[in-house]
Design a protein around this nucleic acid. Structure first.
Length: 234
DNA sequence: GTCCAGGGCCTAC
DNA sequence: GTAGGCCATGGA
């Protein structure tokens, strides 16, 4: 079988230990992150859509506007116009696309899961993931965030920070795809939703503080001591 | 003024 | 298959 995409580096049986040490170090330095900061499963799903390429502060602005407009229930979202949803989610950016994604999700939920998040989230994990990925506007990262944070399923959200940090630490090749990095983490971590939840949240926090897209990083980073050769990899 | 954010889609090559 | 453009707002 030909493998065209760069594969994550397999460090053998010790890889799990390495990853757990990363996790423990971040947890020790930063403490529990308390993700996902939404009150309901619907809130988690809306947040997952709104946070696409958007800072969480802007997502919070949009969520507040949704709440003020009474749009944080399925019943109200069904009756809301496109313009109402667009106006509420505007601070999160890409507001036309995101409003349309929200409407598409609600329509699909009504058609395929009796309009019930209980019914939806009771479906088998792989089947549910495959179906969600078919919805326009839901890519792998958003779907996995929904599965992990709303459905408590063990899908690691291998977002840009996760890929960047693992790459800079030599655990994944530069340019590794979402699926490659997620598969790597799934092979080397116990399938524990609580672990995936906290691990991902910690990686994002470290990424925001120390691993920006272009900036040099590592100074003061909780993971600095783990860098290959003890030197900055970035 | 510039960069960036807890992505995803589409098109051209 | 993949690189590049586009979608958009708000904070640093």
């Amino acid at each position: 079988m030909k493998e065209s995409a760069p594969s994550a580096t397999d460090h053998g049986p010790g890889t799990t230990d390495v990853l757990i040490r990363y996790y423990q170090q971040m947890l020790l330095r930063l403490g529990p992150q308390g993700w996902w900061p939404a009150r309901t499963r619907l809130g988690v799903i809306l947040g997952a859509i709104l946070t696409q390429s958007t800072s969480w502060t802007n997502v919070e602005l949009a969520m507040r506007r949704l709440r003020r407009a009474g749009l944080l229930t399925l019943e109200r979202l069904r009756r809301a116009t496109r313009a109402e949803i667009e106006a509420a989610v505007r601070p999160a950016g890409f507001y036309r696309q995101k409003a349309e994604t929200i409407r598409a999700f609600i329509t699909w939920l009504d058609r395929c899961s009796l309009g019930s998040l209980n019914v939806l989230l009771a479906r088998p994990s792989q089947d549910l993931r495959r179906e969600l990925l078919r919805l326009r506007g839901l890519g792998p990262e958003t779907v996995d965030a929904i599965l992990l944070y709303a459905g408590r399923r063990p899908f690691f959200v291998a977002d840009a920070y996760t890929r960047r940090i693992l790459s800079r630490h030599g655990l994944a090749p530069k340019g590794a795809t979402y699926d490659t990095v997620q598969d790597f983490l799934h092979r080397h971590l116990p399938p524990d939703p609580e672990l995936f939840n906290e691990f991902h949240a910690l990686l994002v926090e470290v990424g925001k503080r120390h691993c920006k897209r272009q900036a040099a990083c590592c100074q003061g980073c909780p993971l600095e001591e783990f860098l290959p050769g003890g030197r900055p990899a970035c």
